[in-house]
């Protein structure tokens, strides 16, 4: 089960992360070169702006990457991503409602609304899918939830009380790490870590699911327990991610595909490399957003990742098409 060094990407990814982290701290509108004359306010820029932003990128990227790998394993589908359960759109709806109602100006109200939306999403999923623990039923319930929350979000936007709220909602929905600080790190870190721990506990069951639901059950997998582990883990990771950074798409879809050729392909073997690759991808994408010279502000992280993700997705589809032909 161990495999050759080619199937062990973790040391390489850790090295790349160690190289990327300083780069992310130094890069930005103000370049802080370590051996050049000191930049004014370098310490506050590093400690209060760039370090929390980099840590947040690592936390969210790791969560989304691992969550994507687990979702693909759970649904046995390479096109699955963490958004499929409908929890991300529900969290986004919660956040949008905080803008709509004006509570977003209060401290911590926005993440609280978003986390409430995510929790409500998990609860609704449980109520709709029931105890059958059927993957198909569960996916359909998630899609229904995503569709409903998407529609309600659009409704909130169209009935937006003032142009300021409208602009805040639209900008926020694009997803970004701009102006995020240590508060956001402390909001996202504990749920994400807990979610990652839950995913680790689901690893063996996800491996067994490779053989289909019946064979997995014969190998001792409890489908109801697995479903709850997945909902809780993805709910915590995606919900807290949306609460602090808005919707960041494509990471959960892309990362497992990048990693899979370098592993034994067992879903559990994908979790750690996907977490590390997700962290690296988000860190580098956020660096890119900071240094790209755009008039009118930074490139939004959500947009950057979607721009990178769409061609990746297309390549994946073309490859699948050639396999099917």
């Amino acid at each position: 089960m161990g495999g050759s060094p080619m199937t062990r990407p973790v040391p390489l990814l850790l090295t790349l992360l160690l190289l990327a982290l300083p780069l992310s701290l130094l890069a930005g509108q103000v370049w802080i070169a370590p051996f050049a004359p000191p930049v004014k306010n370098a310490i506050p820029i590093l400690m209060e702006l760039r370090l929390p932003r980099a840590v947040l990128a690592l936390v969210l990227g790791a969560g989304l990457g691992a969550c994507g790998a687990a979702m693909q394993g759970y649904l046995r589908n390479p096109l699955a991503d963490p958004g499929l359960f409908g929890i991300a759109p529900m969290a986004a709806l919660g956040a949008v409602l905080s803008f709509y109602t004006g509570y977003a100006v209060q401290p911590f109200a926005l993440p609280l609304f978003a986390l409430t939306g995510a929790a409500l999403g998990m609860l609704l999923l449980a109520l709709i899918a029931g105890r059958a623990a059927s993957v198909v039923l569960f996916t359909l319930a998630g899609m229904m939830l995503a569709s409903l929350s998407g529609a309600l979000t659009s409704l909130a936007i169209s009935l937006s009380p003032n142009p300021f709220a409208l602009s805040e909602i639209v900008t926020w929905l694009m997803g970004a790490l701009e102006n995020r600080g240590w508060d956001e790190v402390w909001i996202a870190l504990p749920p994400t870590l807990l979610g990652l721990l839950l995913l680790a506990r689901a690893g063996r069951a996800l491996d067994a699911l490779t053989l289909g639901e019946a064979a997995a059950r014969s190998l001792g997998v409890d489908p109801v327990r697995l479903q709850w582990l997945m909902v809780m883990a993805c709910g915590l990771i995606v919900g807290s991610g949306v609460a602090v950074a808005g919707i960041i798409g494509f990471v959960g879809l892309m990362v497992p595909h990048m990693v899979r050729p370098f592993t034994s392909q067992r879903p559990s073997a994908l979790l750690v490399p996907s977490a590390l690759t997700g962290a690296l991808l988000l860190l580098l994408a956020d660096c890119l957003c900071r240094v790209l010279p755009l008039t009118g502000g930074e490139l939004r992280l959500g947009i950057a990742l979607s721009l990178m993700g769409a061609p990746f997705f297309l390549r994946l589809l073309l490859r699948m098409r050639s396999t099917l032909a």
Binding site: M1, R76, R204, D207, A208, L209, T210, L211, G212, A214, A215, S218, L219, G220, R260, S264, Q265, R266, P267
Partner: peptide, 25 residues
Amino acid sequence: GYLPQSGEVAWNLSVESLAALGRLP
């Protein structure tokens, strides 16, 4: 040990990795 009729293998595992799934319990 139960072998279903479907013969499903969702991911492109090696033969050895596939057999190793039998050790999960």
